[in-house]
Structure formats: C-alpha cells, structure tokens
C-alpha cells in the first residue's frame, strides 16, 4: 500500500486558558489516502477545527505524531512549516480570509509570491486556477464586488494554485446559503474527480453525503470512521429525508 498523504497517531491538543486546561483532542488516529474525499463531522466543540488546524500545519499538537507525505512535521522549524503550508497544503477557511484591497487574481497569486515554484507564469497559473473554479470573468473584481459563493471560490482557487497534495476546508459552506453551498460542493466533487485529495469539515449531513468517507468526532475522539455508504447515522439521515420527501410528494398529491 502507498504511504498515506496524512497519517496521525495519538494526537492530543490541550489549550490552556488561564489556569484551566481544555482538552480539545484526546488521542486521534487518522489516515488519508491519495485521492480520497473525506468529511469530518461532529457537534460544535468536538474538536474539528482544532484537528484541521493541526493538519494544515497552522498549529501543532500537544502530543502525538503527524506525518505529511511521509515527513514528520514536529521536527520541522517554522520556515520549513511555512514551505509545507505553501507547497503541500491548500487551506479553505469558513470566513474566506481574502485580502480586501486586492483583486481576485491578486488574491489567488498570493501563495505563489512566497513560493519557489512557478516563478515565471505565476499570473497565468493564478488565472488558470480561477478558471478551474469558474471565475474567469471575475479576475479583476475585489472581494467586496463578489457574492459569498464567489468569494469562497476565489479562496478555493487560491488554495489550489500551488498544486497542494491535499485540500483542507473547515466548514467551507458555513457562511453560505444552501443553494450556494450546493454549488461549492459540486465544485469540490469536480475537483475530486480531477484527482484532488480533499478533506472537509461540515456539520451538515447532506454535504457530508457527497464525500466518500465520513469521520465523526465527539469530545476530541474519533467516534466512527466509515465509507459514506456504510455510515449508520448518514444512512439513517438519507432514509429519513427520503421519507420526508415522499410524504411531501403525497400530501401534494392529495391537495392536487
């Protein structure tokens, strides 16, 4: 079997707030293979964001091992971690985090400014990345001239521009309405179909349903880790929403 892109073992994260300690992660194991599309689910406060930040090398675990593409991250210094964030990880935030002064094109180019790759053709690559998310016609717009969904697409284009081995998205649809959320999910599916490895955090079952695998967290531990088709909670959700749809259809039939 090939080495997984992500391999974490016994990861703990303890936040210190004053004298109090918050145990956000209590020993998480997780492997993500190449070209997987995984959803992480869990109640609010279950440690999803904490886990994503650690996977994105934005934060470090208090204890435990994190191997990214076979390299141990805890032995890296801050400059090496910066390079990992630049070249191997594409991070999508719930709140987009775009630079308001810069155009969509400039925003997407940002990772290339700090990259050793693509010295020539950075502009072209950024334009190509925007095309992939369907925003070729919005290159010179600033974030405040774009809708929420478009802003998130710019953020996704930025995350993709340096060809990361994994795309991490922490509640990417959390700030969007359901119609726009569907568009973003469709985009993720398209990227996955093109070969991109994707890990998204969500608390919406219907969004998680698009992933091939669902990892559920509770109180900082992995509760379950199943293919979507075998996840009991999700299958239950699918059945119930189907029934609800049928009921709605039949009442409609009665009134008609």
């Amino acid at each position: 079997m090939t080495t997984p892109i992500i391999r974490i073992r016994e990861v703990h994260k303890v936040y210190r707030v004053g004298a109090e300690k918050v145990h956000a992660l209590r020993g998480v194991d997780l492997d993500i293979q190449r070209n997987e599309f995984v959803a992480i689910m869990g109640a609010s406060g279950s440690g999803k964001s904490t886990l994503m930040n650690i996977l994105g090398c934005l934060d470090q675990p208090t204890k435990g091992v994190y191997e990214l593409n076979g390299k141990l991250t805890h032995s890296m210094d801050s400059a090496q971690l910066a390079r990992v964030r630049n070249e191997e990880i594409g991070f999508v935030f719930q709140s987009f985090e775009l630079l308001n002064r810069a155009t969509a094109h400039k925003n997407v180019m940002l990772p290339l400014v700090y990259s050793r790759r693509h010295f020539w053709g950075a502009r072209r690559r950024a334009a190509e990345s925007l095309r992939r998310v369907g925003l070729s016609d919005r290159m010179d717009h600033r974030p405040n001239q774009l809708s929420g969904g478009q802003r998130q697409r710019v953020a996704i284009a930025r995350a993709l521009v340096n060809e990361p081995s994994i795309l991490l998205a922490d509640e990417p649809t959390g700030n969007l309405d359901s119609k726009t959320s569907d568009d973003i999910i469709a985009l993720f599916k398209k990227l996955h179909a093109e070969g991109q490895t994707i890990l998204i955090v969500t608390h919406e079952e219907d969004i998680a349903g698009h992933a091939a695998r669902i990892v559920r967290l509770r109180d900082g531990r992995v509760l379950s880790d199943n293919p979507t088709s075998q996840d009991p909670i999700h299958q239950d959700y699918v059945r119930r929403s189907l029934e609800a749809a049928q009921r709605a259809a039949s009442t409609e039939g009665v009134t008609a």
């Binding site: 964030r85 991070f91 700090y114 930025r158």
Partner: peptide
Amino acid sequence: IGLRMAVGARAKD
C-alpha cells in the same frame, strides 16, 4: 498576517 503565513509566508517574509 495570519493568512499570509497560512499560505506560506515565513517569519522573515
């Protein structure tokens, strides 16, 4: 600054 670091800016950048 956080965003720039998240996309690969080093401390010295």
